[in-house]
Design a protein around this nucleic acid. Structure first.
Lengths: 209, 209
DNA sequence: TAACTAACTGAACGTACGTTCAGTATTACT
DNA sequence: AGTAATACTGAACGTACGTTCAGTTAGTTA
């Protein structure tokens, strides 16, 4: 689930309390970060938002960046946790893939503000912490890779072994695009149409004719 | 070319001098912004970088955001100015498209730091100014739309009229992805291979079999 | 009930940085 | 030469904000 949560230092001893308070922090921060951006949001606002004093807030984190890590981590695991259970590798690879795409794209639509936030604020993280985010994204990519691989083995898809990761990235980015290009896409297409069209053209590329 | 340059107020009268000084400002700022991000770069650094005093700098802009506008605008027109002359609509639509994709993707590779910067800092612009950036991006999209349209008319491509803009966006984003997913892609593929594979799968989707 | 500890408070600290402004240098005009 | 206008300078201003810390509250132990 969460990758880095446990690695952020805190001066509070009670592990359970840390868990609770950090959830409160994240809940308050996500909202503000997404609306105003990381830099424009102040510690004071975050603390105020859920009725905690600034001093106490600092008992649960070391720096403002820690909050950003918590938030990025939270967003990532939210997406992943929502995608994973609805994805299944069945015998009908085409159906599996279509289903995975639809699920993922719908979740992106729902969480589009979060997705855009990740695109924009990842760079505010230190090198070390950015790696966690990338890793998490690679995990997601692997979900699609697995479906593709399975389809190739079954003979439903025809993709050069070496290009499977690339294809997986394409599928993901074409979903995320729905969020970060919404100014163009959501003016001209409905989500349903978008999913349908993109699915079709993805399948066209890989189906073994 | 530049969209907003002329609309930023300046207390200096000499139009030509404004042009010159702003070029200096942009040159200094682009570099710093790309390396350190907009927020982390200070006015002082920018001024110092090309040996101008802070006071004078402020004769040519009103706020720090003005510099960001100038820089975003500069990056956009750089990309556009480099793509446009090498794109041509010939009788051989397939060749035209392949050529346009290769040109665009190579430029992205060269300017990848700039592309990533645009993705990340556009949000720091006010709503009004963001529209300029989007508009500029739509101009680029239209280049690809035109090639696609032409190919459809000629019978080389088979795309539903309504999906041409979407296809154009796909082509562009699959290029930009080379920059903002470099942590995954550039580890596993060379630029040449990337261009080849992506071109092929794009053409596969749209060629009239 | 005294002593100790853990959790919490918010005023105070320090500083970094965008912006201004009083003053200087340079050029143009009369 | 004297005046005015334009371009330039950088110290000074103000403030916003991340972080700290001396002190309070509440709970636990003995």
């Amino acid at each position: 689930m969460s990758v880095s949560k446990k690695e952020i230092e805190s001066s509070v001893k009670d592990k359970e309390l840390i868990e609770i308070r950090r959830k409160e922090i994240v809940n308050a921060a996500v909202d503000l970060f997404v609306r105003k951006g990381f830099h424009r949001t102040t510690i004071r606002e975050i603390a105020q938002k859920f009725g905690m004093s600034v001093g106490t807030l600092y008992e649960y984190i070391r720096t403002k960046e820690d909050i950003l890590i918590l938030v990025c981590d939270y967003i990532n695991s939210t997406v992943r946790m929502r995608v994973k259970p609805s994805v299944e590798i069945t015998k009908d690879s085409t159906r599996s893939l279509k289903n995975a795409i639809e699920t993922y794209y719908r979740i992106i639509d729902e969480l589009q503000d979060y997705i855009i936030f990740l695109y924009q604020e990842t760079k505010s993280l230190s090198h070390e912490n950015r790696k966690y985010i990338f890793k998490s994204e690679e995990d997601m990519t692997r979900i699609f890779e697995d479906i593709l691989k399975h389809g190739v083995e079954q003979g439903s898809f025809k993709i050069d072994e070496k290009n499977i990761p690339l294809m997986a990235h394409n599928i993901m980015v074409q979903g995320q695009m729905w969020a970060f290009r919404r100014w163009a896409l959501q003016k001209n297409y409905t989500l349903e149409r978008y999913i349908e069209t993109q699915s079709k053209s993805i399948l066209e590329q890989i189906s073994a004719h």
